[in-house]
């Protein structure tokens, strides 16, 4: 176990900039999720940490040691690959023991750690089988067990759940969280699924176009997104952004008077759909275009002042398409964004 430090790492493939710049510090035993849309450079960053890809510049430090020039085997880490990469010609037991056997660990220690990893991932009964005889979920367990068995300083995971079906994914997510908490391994976990990142991680690093745009606890990323991109990417449905104008330090939205972070000029008002509440008087006008009953809540899509907006209201509300409602929210829930840069105003 050790802390992982990524400092100013960048990578281009010819003319394609895969990773513009990434700096990230992960504490000992911490679980950080690298979250971003497909193609934003998550895998590239993970592979650079693993030593499978060479960075154009920057450093990777594990436990205070610069490992940038070391081959993967000398970095003291383990990795779970997106397609599992379980060795097909070895039994499950041989797979799980592989890392220890390569390190020439004594047989007793191999047996002990394989047994522990296998019991953590509940694959004790599969140890004699070959991967071809396993289901996708079981192979995934083997891949995680193989990584845990070496008791790595740092554990890297690249979308380990993305090849499982939805129900299994939900199950494995909870299980993985429990197992990794028990193992207490420093973990960098790549995913494009925000629910996964939010549910698993101590902190989430959101990536966009080759850069890390926000690093914060899941609830912070959710409540206080650092940019329009983060607000739109994290949370389902995404955050609403309304173009508004400040006049004398004030923004008016229907009957609402909100104190703006600037005297004059255009800016974006960010508000989560769940923060919106239907009111009798005051508030601003919202015209419902579509109402979707989703069981736990009712999702309304419509517009206010010509701008698209979504609202989440309790499931028992009787709202039909074409209805006009008055909505209001707590001003403290607003996230102001700069209209030009798309960055949060006054963000820490």
């Amino acid at each position: 176990m050790a802390e992982l430090l990524i400092e100013g790492v960048a990578k281009s493939f010819g003319p394609v900039v895969a990773l513009a710049e990434a700096t990230l510090a992960i504490g000992d035993g911490e679980f950080v999720a690298l979250l971003g849309p497909s193609g934003c450079g998550k895998t590239t960053l993970l592979r650079i940490v693993a030593g499978l890809e060479e960075a154009n510049c920057g450093q990777v430090l594990i436990g205070g040691r610069d490992v940038s020039a070391l081959p993967p085997r000398a970095r003291g880490l383990a990795m779970v690959f997106q397609n599992y990469a379980v060795f097909p010609h070895m039994t499950v037991g041989e797979n799980v023991a592989f890392g220890l056997a390569m390190a020439r660990a004594p047989a007793a220690r191999i047996a002990k750690q394989v047994a522990r990893a296998a019991s953590l991932m509940q694959i004790e009964t599969l140890l004699g089988r070959y991967p071809a005889q396993l289901s996708g979920g079981q192979r995934q367990r083997v891949a995680v067990a193989r990584a845990l068995a070496v008791e790595p300083a740092v554990l890297l995971m690249d979308e380990p759940l993305s090849n499982l079906d939805a129900l299994l994914r939900l199950e494995m997510r909870a299980e993985l969280k429990a197992v990794l908490r028990e193992a207490g391994t420093t973990t960098l976990y790549v995913t494009h699924d925000q629910t996964e990142a939010m549910g698993l991680a101590d902190r989430v690093a959101v990536m966009h176009e080759g850069r890390i745009v926000q690093i914060a606890a899941p609830s912070d990323v959710y409540r206080r997104p650092a940019s329009v991109f983060v607000g739109g990417f994290v949370g389902n449905p995404p955050m609403n952004f309304l173009r508004v104008a400040a006049v004398s330090g004030e923004v008016r939205l229907g009957a609402l008077r909100l104190s703006a972070p600037m005297e004059e000029g255009g800016l974006l008002l960010g508000i989560r759909p769940e923060q919106l509440a239907v009111v009798e008087t005051g508030g601003f006008l919202f015209r419902v275009a579509v109402a979707e009953p989703l069981g736990t809540h009712l999702l309304l899509t419509g517009e206010t002042g010509g701008q698209r907006m979504r609202a989440v209201v309790p499931p028992d509300a009787t709202v039909v398409a074409g209805a006009e409602l008055l909505l209001a929210f707590d001003p403290a829930a607003i996230r102001w964004m700069d209209a030009a840069s798309g960055r949060a105003i006054g963000a820490a």
Binding site: R73, F87, P88, M102
Partner: peptide, 13 residues
């Protein structure tokens, strides 16, 4: 698959 080889490298080969 290339990943099989990469997994081997990561796990000590």
């Amino acid at each position: 698959p290339r990943e099989l080889e990469e997994a081997a490298w990561v796990f000590g080969c």
